[in-house]
Design a protein around this nucleic acid. Structure first.
Length: 837
DNA sequence: ATAGGGTTAG
C-alpha cells in the first residue's frame, strides 16, 4: 500500500528518490511497472520521460518483455516522449502485437508529423490482417488523423470511410467525429455536415470539429450559430468548443459575443487553461481592446509560447510598436525561444517604427533559431528592410529565399514603388506573372502608385484593364489609387468614372476625388462634389479642407476661401500645418497678402512647408525683398530649406532681376544643401538670365543641363528672345520647344509674334500656318472676377457680358494711359493680346 | 477524436 501511494505521487518525487526506488523494482514488485509507466505517460514531462529506458530495462530484467500489455504501455510512453526510434524498435521486437499496438504506432507517427510512416504501417497491417475482423474504432480514428497530414489524404480517407461503413463503425462517436474532422479540415464542409447530422450521438469534440470547420472556411457566423444549436441539445460545452467559439467571435470582431463567452467560462467553472486564455487575448486584441488583452495575459500563470506570441501580434496589429518590441525582448530574457510566428509579428512592428537596428537583431536571431527558411519570416524581413530604406537588404532576402508567394512579390514591389523605381517594380511584376503567381489588390495598389508618381497614364490604363481582367474587386483601396493616378495624369473625368463606380465611399476616397478636381483646376466640379459631400453629412478632415481650399485658390475665390476657413476653425483643424499652408496660399492667390502674412505669423514656424508657401506668395506679389528676407530668417533659425523653398527664392529673384543673387542661390542648392535642382529651378534660371538679356548664357545654360529640358524651358528663352528681338536664337528656341511638345501652340504663337514685331510678315505667315498644320488650337485666354458672390467670366474679344460697353470704354481709357506711361518700345502682339480689341 | 498565434495597404 505504501509503495502504491508512493508511485501514484511519482510526479512529485525528486531525482534522488527515484534512483533509490529503482532498487525495489525486482520481480516481486513487477505489478508496479504499469503504474510507473502510466505516471510517465500522463505526466508528459521530460524529466520523467528519460526514465523510460530504465523502466524498459527493468521489464526485460523482470522477464516481462513478452507481455503485450506492458509493451503497449511502453510504446505509448516512448511516443508521448517523442522517442520514436525506441518505440519502433520495441514494436519490431515484440513477439505479439494486437490492434492497440498497431494503432498506437500509427497515432505516434501522426502526432510527430510522420503521417506517411503511419500510413505505410497501416497498409502493412491491412495486408496481413483481415480488417473487418480485427479493426476497431480506435484504429480507424488513428488512420483518419494520419490521412489529414499526408498528401495522399483523399484516397486513403475515402477507403477508411468505406471500411467504417462496412464494419458498421461509421455511426460510432469516435469514428464519426474523426470523419467529421477529416472532411471539415479538407474543406468538404457539406460532406462533414451530412455525417455530422447522421451521427446518433455527438459529444463536445464532434461539435468542436464541425464548428472549427466552419470558421476555417470563414463562415464564422455559421460557427457561432452552431453553438446555439449545441446548447439546445444539452451537450455541455468544454474548453475546446468555447475556444473555437471565441476565435470565431474574434474573427468577425464580435466583441459582445466574445465577452458573453468569457463570462460564461467564468461562471461555469470550466477550467481556464492556457489555450482558452490565449484565444481570449486574441479576441480582445482583434477587437482593439489591447488593455483588456494584456490583463488576461498577465493573469495566466503558466504562459506558453502561444500566449506571448498572441500578445506580441496583438500589439503589432494595433500599432503598439514599442510594446511589441519590448515584449519580444522580454520573451528572450525569460529564456523562451520565440518561433516564426513571434518573429513575423515583431518584424512588422520594427518596419512600422523604421527600427532598422532591432529589425536586424531579429533577423540574426531568426537565422540562429533556424527560422531562416520560413516564408512568413522572410516576407516580414523583406517588408521590414524595405520600410527601413534598406531595399538592397530586402532584395538579398528576396533573392536568397525559396518559394516566393504573392506577399513576397508585393512587399518587394512596394519597396521599389516607394523609391519610384518603375523599372524594377515592373520587372518583378512581369516575373511573377510569368511564374503564374496571381497578383492581388496590393500588387496593383503599389504599381498604380508608381505610375501615379511618375504620371504614366498609359501604364495606369493597362493596370486598370488587368485589375478588371483578374477580377480584383474594385474596392476602396484600389479605387482610391486609380482616382489618384487618373487625376495626376489630368484624366479627371476617368477618375470620376472610377469614383462613381465604387459602391462605398469613405472619407479617403472623397478626399482623393476632391484633390483630383483641385489639382486639375476643376473648381466648379469640386465645389459641386463638396456640396454633395456636405449633404451626406460626412465629416470633413484636414485633407478634405486642404483639397477645397486649394480649389478656392485656383478660383481665386475669396468668398469660398473665407467660408472654408470658417468651417476649418469650427472643425478644429486650423492648426494643422497642411491646412494652414493651404490657407496661406489661398489668401495670397486671392490677393490678400496681409491675411496670408497674418496666418503665417500664428503658425509655430517650425514647418518648412509654411515658410515655402509664404516665400512663394511674397514672390508672386512682387515682394521679392521680403521673400529673400524670409529665406534668410529661415536659415538663421537653422531650418533646412527644401526643393520647394528654392522654387520660391529663385522666382523672387526673377521678379526683381537679381541675377547674381539668383545664380548664387541656385548653385548653393546643391553644394550647401545637397538638393538636386529640378526642372522648375532650371527654368527659373533660364528666365532669370533671359529677363536680364543674357540670352547666349541662357542658351548655354540649357544645353549644359544634366536633365532633359522641357518645352517650357525653351519657350522661356524664346519669350526672352522676343523681348530682346534676337530672331536667330528665337528661331532655334522655338524649334527645340516644338520638337519636345509639337502640339503646344504657345511656341508658335510666340515665334510668330516675334516675327511680327520685326516686320517679318512672310515668316510670321509660315509660323501661323504651322499652327493649323500641327493641329494646335490656340486656347482662348479667359479670366474672371468675383463681385458679390457672382463670378464674371471674360474671354478675349468677348462681347457677352451685359456691361460690355462700359468695360470696353474703360479698357480704351486704360490702353491710352498705358501708351502715355509706357517706357519700353511698342511691341505689336498680333495673336494674343488682351489689350487690342 | 478536438483548439489557439504570423507578413504586404489608398
Amino acid at each position: 500500500m505504501l509503495k502504491i501511494s508512493f508511485i501514484t505521487s511519482l510526479n512529485l518525487i525528486s531525482e534522488s528518490k527515484w534512483v533509490f526506488s529503482q532498487t525495489f523494482l525486482t520481480r516481486q514488485f513487477s505489478f508496479l511497472i504499469p503504474c510507473l509507466l502510466k505516471s510517465c505517460i500522463f505526466s508528459q514531462s521530460l524529466h520523467l520521460s528519460h526514465h523510460l529506458p530504465s523502466i524498459h530495462a527493468q521489464t526485460v530484467v523482470s522477464g516481462l518483455q513478452s507481455e503485450l500489455f506492458f509493451n503497449n504501455l511502453l510504446i505509448n510512453g516512448y511516443s508521448k516522449s517523442g522517442l520514436l526510434h525506441e518505440a519502433r524498435q520495441l514494436f519490431d521486437q515484440m513477439p505479439q502485437r494486437n490492434i492497440i499496438s498497431w494503432s498506437s504506432m500509427i497515432s505516434m507517427y501522426t502526432q510527430h508529423g510522420q503521417a506517411e510512416e503511419g500510413l505505410s504501417l497501416f497498409s502493412t497491417f491491412a495486408r496481413s490482417f483481415s480488417f473487418s475482423n480485427s479493426s476497431n474504432e480506435f484504429m480507424l480514428a488513428s488512420v483518419l488523423s494520419a490521412c489529414l497530414q499526408s498528401p495522399t489524404v483523399i484516397d486513403c480517407a475515402l477507403q477508411v470511410h468505406c471500411l467504417a461503413i462496412k464494419t458498421g463503425y461509421s455511426s460510432d462517436v469516435f469514428v464519426g467525429t474523426a470523419l467529421v474532422n477529416f472532411y471539415s479540415k479538407t474543406g468538404f464542409m457539406e460532406k462533414a455536415m451530412s455525417i455530422f447530422n447522421e451521427l446518433p450521438v455527438k459529444n463536445s469534440v464532434t461539435w468542436t470539429a464541425i464548428m472549427t470547420g466552419f470558421s476555417r472556411i470563414g463562415s464564422h457566423d455559421l460557427s457561432i450559430r452552431m453553438f446555439s444549436q449545441m446548447r439546445v441539445t444539452g451537450v455541455m460545452p468544454d474548453g475546446f468548443v468555447l475556444s473555437s467559439l471565441i476565435s470565431s467571435c474574434a474573427a468577425v470582431e464580435f466583441i459582445r459575443g466574445g465577452r458573453q463567452v468569457h463570462g460564461f467560462l467564468y461562471r461555469s467553472g470550466i477550467e481556464m487553461d492556457v489555450s482558452v486564455n490565449n484565444v481570449l487575448i486574441d479576441l480582445y486584441c482583434k477587437c482593439c481592446r489591447v488593455g483588456t488583452a494584456r490583463k488576461v495575459f498577465d493573469r495566466i500563470i503558466a504562459k506558453n509560447l502561444v500566449s506571448w506570441t498572441t500578445m506580441v501580434a496583438g500589439y503589432m496589429q494595433n500599432s503598439y510598436e514599442l510594446e511589441a518590441i519590448s515584449l519580444f525582448s522580454e520573451m528572450n530574457s525569460q529564456g523562451l525561444r520565440p518561433d516564426a510566428f513571434a518573429c513575423t509579428s515583431v518584424l512588422g512592428s520594427c518596419g512600422s517604427l523604421v527600427a532598422l537596428e532591432q529589425g536586424k537583431q531579429v533577423h540574426g536571431y531568426a537565422i540562429k533559431a533556424n527560422l531562416g527558411s520560413d516564408e512568413y519570416v522572410n516576407n516580414a524581413l523583406i517588408d521590414m528592410y524595405a520600410k527601413c530604406d534598406s531595399l538592397s537588404d530586402a532584395r538579398v532576402v528576396f533573392d536568397v529565399m525559396e518559394g516566393h508567394n504573392v506577399v513576397s512579390y508585393n512587399a518587394m514591389i512596394e519597396g521599389y514603388a516607394t523609391l519610384e523605381d518603375v523599372v524594377e517594380a515592373f520587372a518583378l511584376f512581369r516575373r511573377m506573372r510569368s511564374l503564374l503567381i496571381c497578383p492581388t489588390l496590393l500588387t496593383f495598389v503599389s504599381l498604380i502608385g508608381v505610375s501615379a508618381s511618375l504620371s504614366r497614364v498609359n501604364i495606369s490604363k493597362q493596370l486598370h484593364c488587368l485589375i478588371i481582367k483578374f477580377g480584383v474587386l474594385l474596392e476602396l483601396y484600389i479605387g482610391c489609387a486609380l482616382i489618384d493616378v487618373y487625376s495626376k495624369c489630368s484624366f479627371v473625368d476617368d477618375a470620376r468614372i472610377v469614383f462613381d463606380g465604387l459602391e462605398d465611399h469613405d472619407l479617403v476616397v472623397w478626399n482623393a476625388m476632391l484633390f483630383g478636381y483641385s489639382q486639375n483646376g476643376e473648381g466648379e466640379e469640386a465645389l459641386k462634389l463638396f456640396k454633395r459631400f456636405c449633404a451626406l453629412r460626412m465629416t470633413p478632415n484636414a485633407f478634405t479642407f486642404v483639397a477645397v481650399v486649394t480649389m478656392a485658390s485656383y478660383f481665386a475665390s475669396l468668398f469660398h476661401g473665407l467660408q472654408f476657413h470658417a468651417q476649418i476653425i469650427k472643425a478644429g483643424v486650423d492648426y494643422d500645418s497642411h491646412v494652414l499652408n493651404a490657407l496661406i496660399d489661398m489668401y495670397a492667390k486671392c490677393g490678400c497678402i496681409q491675411d496670408a502674412r497674418a496666418l503665417f505669423c500664428i503658425t509655430n514656424k517650425t514647418d518648412i512647408v509654411c515658410w515655402n508657401s509664404m516665400i512663394s506668395s511674397c514672390a508672386q506679389h512682387g515682394h521679392a525683398e521680403e521673400a529673400l528676407k524670409l529665406f534668410n530668417v529661415l536659415l538663421t533659425r537653422k531650418m533646412v530649406p527644401t526643393y520647394v523653398t528654392f522654387v520660391g527664392v529663385l522666382s523672387a529673384c526673377c521678379h526683381v532681376g537679381l541675377v547674381v543673387e539668383g545664380l548664387c542661390h541656385f548653385y548653393s542648392m546643391k553644394c550647401e544643401f545637397g538638393i538636386e535642382p529640378g526642372i522648375e529651378h532650371y527654368a527659373s534660371v533660364v528666365n532669370l538670365l533671359g529677363h536680364a538679356g543674357r540670352l547666349v548664357e541662357a542658351k548655354e545654360f540649357i544645353e549644359e543641363m544634366p536633365i532633359r529640358p522641357t518645352a517650357t524651358v525653351w519657350r522661356s528663352l524664346l519669350s526672352a528672345c522676343r523681348t530682346y528681338g534676337d530672331v536667330e536664337l528665337g528661331r532655334h528656341a522655338a524649334r527645340m520647344a516644338l520638337l519636345l511638345d509639337p502640339h503646344n501652340s504657345g511656341s508658335q504663337v510666340l515665334i510668330s509674334n516675334m516675327f511680327a514685331s520685326k516686320g517679318m510678315w512672310e515668316e510670321m505667315e509660315k509660323a501661323r500656318e504651322g499652327i493649323s498644320h500641327s493641329g494646335g488650337v490656340k486656347e482662348p485666354g479667359y479670366s474672371w472676377i468675383e463681385v458679390e458672390k457672382e463670378v464674371h467670366v471674360f474671354i478675349a474679344k468677348g462681347r457677352v457680358h451685359q456691361e460690355a460697353e462700359r468695360i470696353y470704354s474703360m479698357l480704351d481709357c486704360l490702353t491710352l494711359m498705358l501708351k502715355v506711361y509706357a517706357c519700353g518700345p511698342q511691341i505689336p502682339q498680333v495673336l494674343v493680346s488682351s489689350w487690342q480689341f
